[in-house]
């Protein structure tokens, strides 16, 4: 068995499952957020910030943020391993993606709790 070191779960089966669970979380979050904004045409700041102050919405949003990080990691890993044949370039791209996703998670957590 070839052991991968740059994929998320260290096993293809684990990545496969994480990719699908995160996809379902993101699909549900997308549907919720689009429906919420559609049904609040005159959305104001107080309603908007109150939404993200509720514990349920913070849990849902954090689940979506972590799902984005995992989903993008696995998705871009798949793309890089398919199209970038040069190992050094691929490693650089993967490290850049992981650092970007790490930054994204920290920044979004700060937005979610720092408001």
């Amino acid at each position: 068995m070839v052991t991968m070191i740059t994929n998320l779960g260290r096993s293809g089966l684990s990545d496969w499952l994480v990719q699908r669970i995160s996809a379902v979380v993101l699909a549900l979050y997308t549907l919720f957020l689009v429906a919420y904004v559609l049904f609040h045409p005159g959305l104001d700041y107080l309603t908007w910030s109150a939404l993200f102050e509720s514990t349920a919405m913070r849990i849902f949003t954090l689940a979506a943020l972590l799902s984005i990080a995992a989903h993008a990691w696995i998705g871009l890993w798949t793309i890089f391993t398919d199209y970038v044949k040069c190992t050094r370039l691929r490693l650089v791209l993967q490290v850049v993606v992981v650092l970007a996703l790490f930054t994204f998670v920290i920044w979004s957590v700060q937005v979610l709790w720092g408001a």
Binding site: I68, L76, I79, F104, S108, V111
Partner: peptide, 23 residues
């Protein structure tokens, strides 16, 4: 795949708007 990469790049705009809108 292409739209997946677009969403990854576009994430920065979405998060920036999210940050400013809640600030």
């Amino acid at each position: 795949r292409v739209t997946g990469v677009m969403l990854f790049i576009g994430l920065i705009f979405a998060l920036w708007a999210f940050d400013v809108s809640l600030s």
